[in-house]
Write a protein that binds this DNA or RNA. Structure first.
Lengths: 360, 360
DNA sequence: TGGCGGTGAGAGAACGTTCTCACAAATCGC
DNA sequence: GCGATTTGTGAGAACGTTCTCTCACCGCCA
């Protein structure tokens, strides 16, 4: 029993040929006599030979692997994205390296470095802060493939796959106005506070002053909330912009509880699935009923939204398809496609359930 | 702007030393004068040098990466396991390659081959069929690290991290008997049918005749159902052993719908999270209320179980901790630990909610 | 002054592939 | 039947590291 995995040299020796010939026979390239080819393949088979991808990669400069930096694989949204990526990658013979950033910029930088060292052929990532992308500059400048998913950055020209969150939120909030709601709260990460203030200042100068891709997902979705208010002629009450400060269910629950204790709104919308779950838990903990006491529109079609109360209406993102699309775009770049970067915006669907009631 | 990533040779040249010295300076080994070391580090810094892990791996024989074969990263159980693995791996400087088997043996074999080619230092996997593990033999025989998670196999001596599913299910079913239920259904994948028959035949000869690790998770959990029946002196009604035949929510929903149309049981238990969701959807679709019309105990503490009906009581697996433990065991093997293989059984918790009612 | 231990650094092999080049043998065209 | 082309094969460089040798140099002591 060999202590070491068999190498091409051993296969070649067993078949009585040179390593060059063995490589040709197994790699199906160059000229090899049919009988030789078969002898080599038999030898490889009997030794249970597997080519060492590392050595191959050193020569070819390609590792047949792609790296993924997501916020958290355990989050259902990213889990679906990752599944979409791995399915496409596997179909094309690529392996996938997964890392989590936890929306922490330093972790993201570290992960990106680790993926670079692993010499992945391309990277798909959800940048934790679209404003701080300098660590990606060198990579992009050398025309190495990079696709952003869930977010884009106007500060860096790359491919991206996003959902039009602002428009989806605007539609949801408008729908609540149409049902007679006037005090509508929005629960999001909205961090840092200064970014929120910058957004309001910019929006005061007109829509053109704000580029949605300079914003984190939650703040970009807040623009939809603002737009709906303007369209319906309602001012924004800062007390109803509920800032959790972190992308966690717990933070959202605490922030929403505080809101509900003071002067409860008649409706609540959220900006992602963690915020939705946290906000809904807070509503339940406060003893309020949905939609009798408060209307609610969540983000992402998670399993629990189907059963909670009489069903929670949600903004549904095509997460799996986004992952697939991101992987396809990346592989196309790896294959040499050098067209200008493209931002693919995928449609969010509104799933109507029973969590919105008209105001009396 | 270099078309190629900078190499050690370029760093060495920039610092005016040999590659050997540059390697020593950056790798913090051997003897290097302090001033030289700093000059090299400065040069590396300014060139934005990153060691090529591939080349390093060729020499050291270690890739600092581990492979994971799970059924489906999108499944909340495996997503949590994977998160546990990646967290531990990252802390120790390892990257993680993720693949999905979809519980398909051929896909598993292919994934395993791909991981071998990638020369991962170790593998963590949920074997799709504990009976068919021959493709892992050579790997294990060469003492390469392999840890199984969620399942083990008596046919192959390896480390494993599992939950005592049979005991958890036995406790759940016993609890239903205590509440006066006599017609208790169990919904599981239970495939192939012959395996179920083999189990019943073996159990007829006594508990000793059946080794839980020769069984797929769902069938092993079925043993708990059988044990509870024997302990309470009830015969097994084959019509109440509901076989979905696939690990999908849809299959579970269809199989459960069929059950409910004929002669509904007074209680239902399930063997994993997909079965739980499918069964619960079928209950709702049939217009039945939980627990008034039918009592229900699910598997895995998913978000929806908190809100559905008046809360679903569940058997909760410590998925994240299982992933962490599996990663720790694997890394310990990679570090050279050669103690005999160990099977770590982690406790499942019973989370009591409002989905079980006493029978009138 | 000569031997010796310690320090710092370079030359070059090794890892397991791919790939270019060279070349012998076989086949072909006329 | 002789040059030209095709076919099959091997030698050896290359990829970017790590790591083992080797060696020059310095200071110290006898």
């Amino acid at each position: 029993m060999p202590r070491h995995a068999p190498t091409l040299v051993e296969v070649a020796r067993a078949a009585g040929v040179s390593t060059a010939t063995a490589a040709r026979a197994l790699g199906n390239y160059g000229r090899v006599k049919e009988s030789t080819r078969e002898a080599v393949k038999r030898a490889a088979e009997s030794l249970n030979y597997r080519p060492n991808e590392l050595a191959r990669s050193m020569i070819t400069g390609r590792t047949q692997s792609i790296g993924v930096i997501c916020a958290d694989v355990y989050d259902p949204f990213f889990a679906a994205v990752v599944r979409g990526i791995t399915d496409v990658a596997r179909g094309r013979g690529y392996t996938v390296l997964i890392t989590n950033s936890d929306e922490n910029w330093h972790t993201e930088v570290e992960s990106f470095g680790s993926l670079q060292s692993s010499r992945v052929d391309g990277v798909i990532m959800a940048p934790s802060d679209p404003d701080r992308v300098d660590h990606l500059r060198a990579w992009v400048a050398e025309e190495r493939p990079l696709v952003m998913v869930d977010r884009a950055s106007s500060r860096l020209e790359t491919d991206a796959v996003v959902v039009d969150g602002p428009t989806a939120v605007e539609a949801a909030v408008s729908r609540l106005f149409d049902d007679g709601h006037e005090r509508i709260a929005i629960v999001g990460e909205f961090s840092p506070q200064s970014a929120v203030e910058r957004l309001f200042a910019a929006l005061a100068q007109g829509d053109e002053a704000v580029h949605p891709f300079d914003l984190s997902p939650s703040i970009s979705r807040l623009t939809g909330y603002v737009r709906a208010h303007r369209a319906h002629g309602f001012p924004i009450d800062p007390a109803l912009v509920v800032r959790s400060g972190a992308y966690t269910v717990e933070a959202a629950q605490i922030a929403t509880s505080v809101l509900l204790r003071s002067d409860p709104p008649t409706a609540i919308v959220t900006t992602d699935n963690s915020m939705s779950l946290g906000a809904y838990r807070a509503i339940r903990a406060a003893g309020l009923r949905v939609p009798e006491d408060v209307s609610f529109i969540g983000f992402d079609n998670q399993d629990w939204t189907e059963f909670a109360s009489s069903g929670i209406s949600v903004i549904d993102q095509p997460a799996y398809a986004m992952g697939q699309e991101a992987a396809r775009m990346l592989l196309s770049r790896i294959d040499g496609n050098s067209e200008p970067p493209r931002i693919v915006t995928m449609p969010a669907a509104f799933i109507e359930r029973g969590s919105v009631a008209a105001v009396r």
